[in-house]
Design a protein around this nucleic acid. Structure first.
Lengths: 211, 211
DNA sequence: CATGTTTGGATAGTGCCACTGTCCGACGAA
DNA sequence: TTCGTCGGACAGTGGCACTATCCAAACATG
C-alpha cells in the first residue's frame, strides 16, 4: 500500500508517518521507483503499535524508539529481549543519597523486596528504572508524611506479583518468539492505563459502598 | 517564612513558586508590607503536594489546580469531595461510536462491570474519565489484535477492587475530614507510579522465575 | 500525448507546556 | 547610607509532538 493508505488505516496523518520514519520508529517502505514507496501489513501493524504506545501508553517518541529497537535487536536472546523492552523505558536522575526521606524510602523498598522474596538489585548505579521510580514515589509520599513503610507497600507488592502472573500468561499465549516480544511490550505498556482506570473506578465503587 | 525559605524547603525555585501562585495552585502569602509576604507551614505542605502531583504523579498544572480546587470546595460534602478530586483528572475526547473496535471495547468493559457487580455508568455523555480511558485503552488493545474481552479484564478488575479496599483503609486512617480528602488525592495519584513500578519489577521477577 | 493530481522527501514552522530570566521599585540589615 | 534581598510583572526559553509548505518526479485521465 501507499503512504496515503497506510495513513488511512493506521490512524495517523501522512505528515506524522513521515515524522515517525525520520525518527526511526518505522522502517522505510520498499522503494518501487525514485519517488514512490510501498508499505506492507508489517508497517501497518508497527504503526498501530507505535500510535498505541504514544497515545494510550503515554510513552515519548524517543522511548518508543528505544523499546522497539530493543524488541527487534537480534543479538539479544529471547528472555533478555523480553526484559530489555520494558527496562529501557523511563530515565530519572539518581536519588540524592543524603536526603533522609530518600533513605527512608530505600529502606521501605528493600524491606518490601525481601518480604516478597524478590531478587534485590545490587548497587545504586544499577537500579532498574522501575526500582528508581518506586523509590522516588515512596520518597514523595514520605515527604508528605504518609505512612509508606514495608507493611504499607506489601499488599501492593503482592497484587503486583499476581498481575505479573496474569500478564505473562497472556504473553506466553503468543505462538512465536517475535509475537511474544511484541505482546510483552504492548501488554506491559497498554495494560497500565487499564489498571489505573480500573483502580479509580474501584475507588468510586468502594467509596460508595462504605457510605 | 519568606519565599526563599519556602523555595528551599519545598524543593522548587522561587520562580516556580511565583508561577504556581500565578496559576492559582498556591494561596498568596500573608502580606506583611507592600512588597513582602509571609508563608506558613500550610503553604509548605501544599507546595510539596503540588510538586509531588506534578513531578511524581505526572499531573498537568491545569489538572492539579482542578483537583486542589475540588478538594477544598467547601460547598461539597465529604463523600463528593473525595470523589471530585479524582473525577476531575483526565479529559479525553468522546470515543467514536461508529468504530467497531470501540464497540467491542465497550462490550468488554460493560461485561466486566456487570461481572464485578459495579454500578454501570448511564449514558455515553456521562462516562467518568476513568471509564472513558478504560474504553480507549481496551480499544487500542483490540485494534492490535490482543484478546481483551471481559474474561481477560476480570482478573485486573478483581485486583483493582482489592487495591481500592487497601487504599480506602489508608484514607480512613486520617483523623480529620480535610486530611482524608488530601490523603485521597495524594494516595490516588502517588500510588499510581508505585503500582506501575511494582508491576514492572514483578514482571522481571516472574519472567526470571519461568526461565 | 497533455494535463492535472498524487507521491515521497526535505525543511521550516506551530502550538502547547512547564518553567525561567530579567527588570523594577520597595524593604531591611550592617 | 548602602547594598543585598524581596516580591511582582511579564517576556522569553527549551522541549516535544507534530504540521505546513515546497518541490520534482510519477501516475491517472482524457
Amino acid at each position: 500500500m501507499r503512504l496515503a493508505e497506510l495513513s488511512e488505516r493506521g490512524g495517523a496523518s501522512t505528515a506524522t508517518i513521515k515524522y515517525y520514519l525520520r525518527e526511526g520508529l518505522l522502517q522505510p517502505g520498499r522503494r518501487i521507483s525514485a519517488t514512490q514507496a510501498e508499505y506492507g501489513e508489517d508497517h501497518l501493524r508497527r504503526l498501530r503499535l507505535v500510535r498505541a504506545l504514544i497515545q494510550i501508553g503515554g510513552v515519548s517518541v524517543a522511548d518508543a524508539r528505544e523499546v522497539i529497537a530493543a524488541a527487534e535487536d537480534e543479538s539479544l536472546d529471547h528472555h533478555l529481549r523480553l526484559g530489555a523492552a520494558t527496562r529501557s523505558l523511563p530515565c530519572v536522575e539518581r536519588p540524592d543519597e543524603d536526603d533522609p526521606a530518600v533513605a527512608t524510602a530505600r529502606r521501605s523498598v528493600d524491606g518490601l523486596l525481601e518480604a516478597l522474596g524478590w531478587a534485590p538489585d545490587s548497587g545504586t548505579d544499577l537500579l532498574s528504572p522501575a526500582h528508581r521510580r518506586l523509590i522516588d514515589s515512596v520518597t514523595a509520599l514520605v515527604r508528605l508524611g504518609y505512612p509508606c513503610g514495608t507493611e504499607q507497600l506489601l499488599p501492593y507488592g503482592r497484587l503486583a506479583a499476581q498481575l505479573a502472573v496474569t500478564d505473562l500468561d497472556l504473553v506466553e499465549e503468543q505462538p512465536t518468539a517475535t509475537e511474544q516480544i511484541e505482546a510483552a511490550v504492548a501488554l506491559t505498556v497498554l495494560y497500565e492505563p487499564v489498571l489505573l482506570s480500573l483502580r479509580r473506578m474501584a475507588h468510586a465503587e468502594e467509596s460508595a459502598r462504605r457510605l
